[in-house]
């Protein structure tokens, strides 16, 4: 299981996380399972750092991996996630996939916000009648 490599910059008060394996071999991070530890590291770092740099140098990724990595985060935080995340070392392929996943999940976030807004805040609860 790939282990996240974490770093912190005191000068800029930002944290960084290397998304990749330390095996030295060419690798594609493709399965959702392989994204879970990285996502949990990102979430922990966002608790204490205003900004987190995600370094994709030397690694290839799939849409499913990136969706598991960032999807839940963007669904919760919406566009504010983009203000706190930066992406470095990305190949053209990784950039294309990141753009796709982030844009689509932002759209899902907006859809969710609209659904929640449609439910009245002060709706009254009427209990169901008891069975005879």
């Amino acid at each position: 299981m790939p282990k996240p490599q974490i770093g912190t910059s005191r000068k800029t008060m930002s944290c960084s996380l290397a998304i990749g394996l330390d095996t030295g071999a060419a690798n594609v991070l493709g399965t959702r399972y392989s994204a879970i530890d990285f996502r949990e590291s990102i979430e922990r770092q966002l608790e204490s750092c205003p900004s987190v740099e995600l370094n994709f140098a030397g690694v290839f990724v799939t849409q499913s991996f990136v969706d598991e990595l960032l999807g839940p985060l963007i669904l919760r935080m919406g566009a504010s996630a983009l203000e706190r995340l930066a992406f470095s070392g990305c190949s053209d392929e990784a950039k294309a996939i990141l753009r796709l996943v982030i844009a689509a999940r932002l759209r899902d976030h907006s859809a969710r916000q609209e659904s929640r807004a449609a439910v009245p805040v002060n709706c009254v609860y009427y209990p169901l009648p008891e069975s005879p």
Binding site: E53, Q63, L82, L85, A86, F87, S88, C90, K95, A96, I97, L98, R99, L100, I102, A103, A104, L106, R107
Partner: peptide
């Protein structure tokens, strides 16, 4: 991927 991207011009910080 651009076929399915709803917002290709989204500002993402690539550094």
């Amino acid at each position: 991927t651009s076929r399915y991207n709803p917002d290709p011009d989204l500002p993402i910080r690539f550094i």
